[in-house]
Amino acid sequence: MLEPVVAKGQLTETDRFIFESWGYFVIPNVLSKEEAAEAYDVSQRLHESRDREFGQIGRTYESEPALERLIDHPDVLPKVQGLLGDRFVLQAGWNTMQPAHAGNGGWHQDGSSAFDFKDLGYPVPLIQLRVSYLLTDQTVPGMGNMELIPGSHRSRVPLPDSIRQSKGDIGIGHVICAEAGSALVFHNGVWHRTFRHDGDYDRFTTHYVYSPPWVRAADRFGNDPEFLERTTPLRRALMGEFARPDAPFGANYEPLPI
């Protein structure tokens, strides 16, 4: 089985080629087993008051150090910088739960239903770069994996409604199989869905979405002042708390302090 696996750290020319061709890649062993387990326990606690159905909680990084550390993980952030350049922000952070014995999710592209990204141009522009940290082993299909359609961010036609409405299968779907602690990095234009989960435990994945600095945040209306006070300068900048230049996002806008 072909797998778009890349090494940690700086974005290489090969990494870029894989991303441009497939629309995503996987970075193994970003988190240790202990770090993934700690983040899993935190996620379980955050979701314990919710109904046991698929759902996500935003801005969990503000209150949970184990999740805050992932905002600028040194094994992953260089990939984000390589793909987006020196000026980007954390547009959203979502901690997602898929309950045990859940079926397939619906096929979709990431973006804004208020103004679909595909309406901006062809190919669909990279507006949201998502990094998904796997907090459970997903080494075989049926463990709450992500399923993506390679190269679909460059398709001129949408996924057929018949497949979307039925949550049906498609022969070119790629079920990501990776160990806990791996990170999946993917383009907002790639068609994807949550694959079924046959296990007896809830599956948690924590997502970080990076965007150009002019994109409005999706998980918050504003940043928590207490979080900004105690976090690092780089993380403050990633939250969009940078000095405004003489013209918004124009001259004198400094790159991130990476």
Rank of each mutant, 00 (worst) to 15 (best):
S152D: 09
D169S: 11
L148E: 00
S162D: 06
C177E: 15
T139M: 13
L148W: 06
D198Y: 11
E147N: 04
D169C: 07
P158A: 04
A180K: 10
V190Q: 04
S182E: 07
R193K: 12
N145L: 07
R193H: 00
G168H: 00
I163G: 07
G173N: 11
T194P: 02
R193E: 03
T136F: 00
T136M: 02
I163A: 03
D169Y: 14
G173C: 11
I163S: 02
L159I: 08
S162R: 12
R193S: 03
G199A: 12
A178P: 06
W191V: 09
G181Q: 00
Q165T: 06
T136P: 01
I149C: 12
T136A: 09
S152G: 05
S162I: 05
A178H: 05
A183G: 05
L159H: 02
G171D: 14
V190P: 11
S166F: 00
S155N: 12
S182Q: 04
M143R: 14
G173D: 10
C177Q: 15
V185F: 00
P141N: 12
M143V: 00
H192T: 07
V157F: 12
V190C: 08
G151S: 12
V157D: 10
K167N: 13
A183R: 05
P150C: 11
V175H: 02
K167R: 15
R154A: 04
A180Y: 01
W191D: 11
G199L: 13
P141A: 14
F186V: 00
I176P: 09
C177A: 05
H153M: 12
R196N: 10
I170R: 15
N188V: 08
Q165D: 08
N188I: 06
R164S: 02
G151Q: 13
H153K: 01
M143P: 00
R154E: 13
A178V: 10
G144M: 07
I176C: 07
M143E: 15
A183T: 06
L148K: 02
I170H: 12
S162E: 13
G168C: 08
I170S: 07
G189S: 07
G189T: 05
T139G: 13
H174W: 13
V140W: 00
V157K: 11
H174N: 03
H192Q: 06
M143N: 08
R164H: 03
E147V: 07
N188C: 12
M143F: 12
S166V: 01
R164I: 10
H153C: 06
Q165H: 06
R196H: 09
S152A: 02
S162L: 02
T194I: 01
S166N: 09
D161A: 08
D198E: 14
P150K: 13
F186Y: 15
N188D: 12
